[in-house]
Amino acid sequence: MGQVIQFAIDVLSLGSLYALMALGLVIVYGILRLVNFAYGELIMVAGYTLYLLDGTALPWLAMAAVAIVMAMVFGVLTEYVAFRPVRMKSVTAVLITSFAFSTLLQHAALLFISPRSRLVPTPALFTRTVEIAGVVVPLRNLLTIAAAVAVLALFTFLLRRTVLGIALRAAASQFRMTRMLGVPANLVITSAFAISGLLAGVVSLFWLGRIGSVVPGIGLEPLLVAFIATVIGGMRSLPGAVVGGYLLALIDVSLNTALPQALLQFRDAFTFSLVIVLLLWRPQGLIRGPATGQRT
C-alpha cells in the first residue's frame, strides 16, 4: 500500500511538471506549426531571475511572481526575435532561428552571469515533508500537483470561456479564417507565446525547487521532456500534451523502479527511441489534434 502511494505521488508530481511543459510547447506548435527550441531557456530565465532577486527583501512568492513574468516576457521576446521576422519564410528558417536564439540566451547567461551553477531561493515549505498513510512525502511534490491542477483549471477556463481563448483554439485549426473574422494574427501569436512563458515560469519554480540551483544549460532537459511528451500525446492536441506528460512520467518512474542499474543509464536512449517509433507509427500522436490547418 505504502509503495503504491509513493509511486502514485511520484508519477503525479513528475507528470504535473511534464504536462505543463508539454502544454507550453504545444500551444505555440498548435497555432504556428513551429517548434520553439528556445522554450527550455524560459526555465533558465526564470531561474536566473530568482537568483538575482535572492537577497532582496521580497518574500519568496513575490520573487516567484517576478520570475514567471520574466519567463512570459522572454517568451514574447522569442516571438519577436526568432519567429515574427521569418514566420512567412520557411519552416526550416524558423527552426534555425529559434535554435540560434536558444544558444544566444544560454551563452548570454554564460557571459553575463557565470558558467557555474547559482543557487536559487526556495521557500521553507519545499523542504518539509508530510506523512500520508505511513509514507513520508516531500511537501514540494504535493504542492507541484496542486499548482498543476490550479494552472490547468485556469488554462481550461481561459480557452473555454474567454473570447481570446476561443480565438486561440480557432487559430489552431484555421488560422486564415480566424483572421478573416477580425482576430489579429499578432494578438493570437503573442498571446500563445505569453501563455507558453507562463507555463514555463510555473514549471521552473518546482523544477528548480527540486535541483536548488540554475546553470546556463538547465533548459535542455525540460525541453527534451516536453518534446517526448508532446510526441506521445499528439503534437497538436492540448489535452494530448497533458496526457503525454503524465504518461511519460509513468514510463520514467516505472523504468526507474524496473530497470537494472546497468540499463537505467540508457533510459534517455529508450525514451527517445520510443519517440521516433511513435512518430513513425502515429505522426499525429496518440490523441489527434484539430482537423486541418494552414499557417500564414
Binding site: 540560434a100 536564439f101 544566444l104 551563452h107
Partner: peptide, 22 residues
C-alpha cells in the same frame, strides 16, 4: 572571465542572416 561571447555573436549573425538575407 569572458566566455560565450563568440557564440552570442554567431547566434546573432545567424538570426540576422535568416531575417535579412535568407
Amino acid at each position: 572571465t569572458v566566455v560565450g561571447l563568440t557564440e552570442v555573436v554567431l547566434a546573432c549573425a545567424m538570426i540576422g542572416i535568416l531575417v535579412l538575407r535568407p
